[in-house]
Design a protein around this nucleic acid. Structure first.
Lengths: 207, 207
DNA sequence: CGTTATTTTAAACGCTTGTTTAAACTGTCT
DNA sequence: AGACAGTTTAAACAAGCGTTTAAAATAACG
């Protein structure tokens, strides 16, 4: 495995665990078993490393998600919100074959990016991958045409909040669920639990 | 105003803005216009300062929230989930008279605490203020008795995610809403928008 | 007033951070 | 072999961090 990939892998899991600000380059390079200076040699700076970690996931996820949403948008009969949100399941879970713990790592990284570093990652995603959001909005509009653009805006952000926050702390939550309810839960289960929640939320009656 | 309170006020708004890890004692003391060493003199350490900032809010909010939930739990007819969640509105908004921008500051702090510093604030809240959670769960159970304890657990965490995440980025979201929809939105509006969302989410049909 | 306590202050502490430097090493091609 | 690009390395850099120190300033009290 190349130095570059060793760094990316180590950075990814540490970032997901402890956030971007909370992870030092020295932790990354020592987990990756490479020299400290290798990060700046291969990526230029810590910020560029963060972008590289996120891009690796977005480039894998984005086309799958696009295809999945396209099916929803082009099907003949009006989709339900449950169907729209279920379109995320397979693309997200397929990140697990792309990389070990890919799904939860990616969602945790997303969560970190929204709270760490004062929204620079939000800028990065919305400018670098705007079509994902566009298609998603279109799909929701087809499912619930009475929703105004403004309400869609707010409810989609509520949805992102639910998903991202849940996934940021999914490890802790799964541990609690395991000890309190003696039931094994994995990331796929959590996704299946959260979808009816957000679908109902977005579909809430107006006024 | 006492040095101690100057520090608390400055720390509060900086913590809300940039997170606990992202705010240095030097930023706090320079905004508060006090000496750097004053923090360690009055609070002992940065961690204790964080606790003090949160306690100031929890001690204000907790009794109001308890009273509000008690009304719901003791009323004769079964409450709706919308009523249960609406019980949060007044106690949360009353933080605004307690302190300028109190509502959004507090909710942002909550969000920070869940993602920064690997869950030490979660421990702090659940051990120091467990009765708030207990009463809330009871209220939800009255409104939707068919929900299993496990489903309540998950859906309440989804709810916390929605609210906390939304409030963590509420400033940015309100800015976007303002420029995209030319509509003034304040924190009370956001709360009124989020309640139907989470009420519907928690009330989602089973299976 | 003088004598304690309490609070504030400037300076320094040791440590970690991201980044840079310049030398050493590796493999490739003529 | 020699030369050259690419890569790795140890060491140092300046800057920022939370915390501690000891002296100066202020307040409280008999």
């Amino acid at each position: 495995m190349s130095t570059k990939n060793k760094i990316l892998d180590a950075a990814e899991s540490l970032f997901a665990d402890k956030g971007f600000n909370g992870t030092s380059l020295r932790e990354i390079t020592s987990l990756a078993e490479v020299n400290l200076a290798a990060v700046n040699y291969h990526f230029g700076s810590k910020k560029e490393l963060i972008k590289a970690v996120m891009s690796r996931y977005m480039n894998e996820l984005s086309p799958n998600l696009q295809a999945s949403l396209l099916v929803i948008c082009q099907q003949e009969n009006k989709p339900t919100l449950n169907e729209v949100f279920s379109a995320f399941i397979d693309p997200l879970l397929s990140l697990n074959v792309f990389r070990e713990n890919g799904t939860s790592n990616f969602l945790q990284l997303l969560g970190r990016g929204y709270t760490d570093s004062q929204g620079f990652l939000r800028w990065f995603l919305t400018t670098q991958y705007p079509e994902v959001i566009t298609n998603f909005v279109t799909a929701v509009q087809r499912a619930y045409p009475e929703l105004s653009a403004e309400d869609i805006f707010w409810r989609l952000h509520f949805t992102m909040g639910t998903v991202i926050f849940t996934m940021s702390s999914s490890d802790a939550l799964m541990d609690i669920a395991k000890s309190d309810f003696e039931q094994q839960v994995d990331i796929a289960d959590v996704i299946r639990k959260v979808i009816p929640f957000v679908a109902s939320g977005v579909g809430a009656p107006l006024r």
